[in-house]
């Protein structure tokens, strides 16, 4: 049982590390800020989820696992919101937005922050 748990957990961790690696590659590969942000946000959500999930599985059911689960929850709250704010700022101030992505003109009330 211990061995099964260890193998599943380590598989999860390796998976998360691979995702982080791909994200780091994308961060340097892409040129446009929004694309790069997409790559960077991958680490904060999926990569963190996989790594911490692996740790939870390896640790078993105890208080530490609850703490790790709370960390996952916090990251899933915080990371998309910060990405959203950064993307809004990029859309507001970018000069070359139309060169890099399709822009749909809509009536927008106010602006994002």
């Amino acid at each position: 049982m211990e061995w099964v748990r260890f193998i599943i957990g380590s598989l999860c961790i390796v998976c998360g590390l691979l995702i982080a690696l791909i994200a780091a590659f994308g961060l340097f590969k892409f040129r446009f800020a929004l694309n790069r942000m997409h790559a960077a946000a991958m680490t904060d959500t999926l990569g963190i989820l996989m790594v911490l999930l692996g740790l939870i599985i390896m640790r078993g059911f105890c208080f530490d696992s609850l703490k790790l689960a709370l960390i996952i929850l916090f990251f899933w709250f915080a990371s998309p919101v910060s990405s959203h704010l950064l993307a809004g700022m990029e859309v507001e101030i970018s000069d070359r937005l139309k060169d890099n992505c399709d822009v749909e003109e809509t009536e927008r009330k106010g602006g994002v922050q």
């Binding site: 916090f74 709250f77 915080a78 704010l85 602006g111 994002v112 922050q113």
Partner: peptide, 18 residues
């Protein structure tokens, strides 16, 4: 002051007390 972002506000309501 910039316009307040509704997504940020809703998340802050949950996260700030934590």
């Amino acid at each position: 002051e910039p316009e307040r972002d509704i997504i940020l506000q809703n998340v802050a309501r949950v996260v700030v007390p934590m």
